[in-house]
């Protein structure tokens, strides 16, 4: 069985510094994506348009980081011809940078809705969104910690815990729909909250994707395909 021990240095030391630089960049892009989620949610809670604009603006840096990581991975593959766990880690890094960039996009999408949601309305189900965002953001954080520490067990836990975010989504979906039926004037804002919930649910899925790649990079095996929490009980499928 392959070990997770990655401490032995390469004979070519420059390769080790390339790898640690890429790990640093993933930590940076991940940190920025997490920050975007929390700032977008804060902007939403306080109806803070300036903060929302800042999230949108910050997304450009996330995009630039993704490009930088991709270039660096491709260059390293070309120049160092990595093998085995090195190759798996580089491929995982390439994919993770793309996934984290998507997470940033979802946060940006949440921020963009701040300006168009009428914040004078009291829509009770939306009060669950901060807790959902917290759960999703924690998944992203744990997935990136699993990457940084090459921890396959933590990666596995992240995949398992994505159900929590899915459950939030299902709950919020149902209660928002009920609320909109009772308050037709809230349908516009309610629809935005639905999209925000969906964005957070997708963030959880992407955290799972990161975790799956970490698991592959560390063990060389694909994580067992587990039943996804959202689909079977997805309100879209189970309700008319």
């Amino acid at each position: 069985m392959n070990t997770t021990n990655n401490s032995t240095e390469h004979t070519v030391k420059a390769f080790d510094s390339d790898i640690s630089e890429m790990r640093g960049l993933i930590a940076e892009i991940g940190g920025r994506a997490e920050k975007s989620i929390s700032l977008a949610m804060k902007a939403l809670a306080n109806n803070d348009l300036d903060l929302a604009r800042e999230v949108v603006k910050n997304d450009k840096q996330i995009d630039a980081l993704e490009e930088k990581i991709d270039r660096m991975v491709i260059q390293t593959i070309a120049l160092r011809a990595p093998m085995a766990d090195d190759l798996r880690e580089l491929v995982a890094t390439l994919k993770i940078s793309g996934v984290v960039e998507r997470i940033g996009d979802y946060a940006k999408n949440i921020a963009k809705r701040v300006a168009v949601i009428d914040n004078d309305l009291h829509i009770e189900p939306a009060s669950l969104l901060p807790a959902m965002a917290q759960a999703a953001s924690q998944l992203v954080d744990d997935a990136l910690t699993a990457y940084a520490t090459r921890d396959a067990d933590l990666a596995d836990q992240v995949c398992e815990r994505d159900r929590v975010v899915d459950d939030f989504y299902n709950t919020i979906f149902r209660s928002l729909v009920t609320h909109m039926v009772d308050n037709p004037k809230h349908i516009g804002a309610g629809a935005h909250f639905l999209f925000i919930a969906k964005n957070l649910e997708r963030i959880g899925d992407h955290a799972t994707n990161v975790a799956e790649m970490v698991y592959f990079a560390v063990t060389g095996e694909n994580i067992g395909e587990r039943e996804r929490g959202d689909n079977p009980s997805d309100p879209l499928y189970s309700e008319d």
């Binding site: 392959n2 021990n5 032995t8 390469h10 004979t11 390769f15 990595p82 085995a84 090195d86 190759l87």
Partner: peptide, 17 residues
């Protein structure tokens, strides 16, 4: 070359030997 089972193989092919 993608998932060697032995530590010594991995160390050699990844240039850690």
């Amino acid at each position: 070359f993608t998932n060697p089972q032995e530590e010594r193989t991995r160390d050699y092919i990844t240039g850690r030997y």
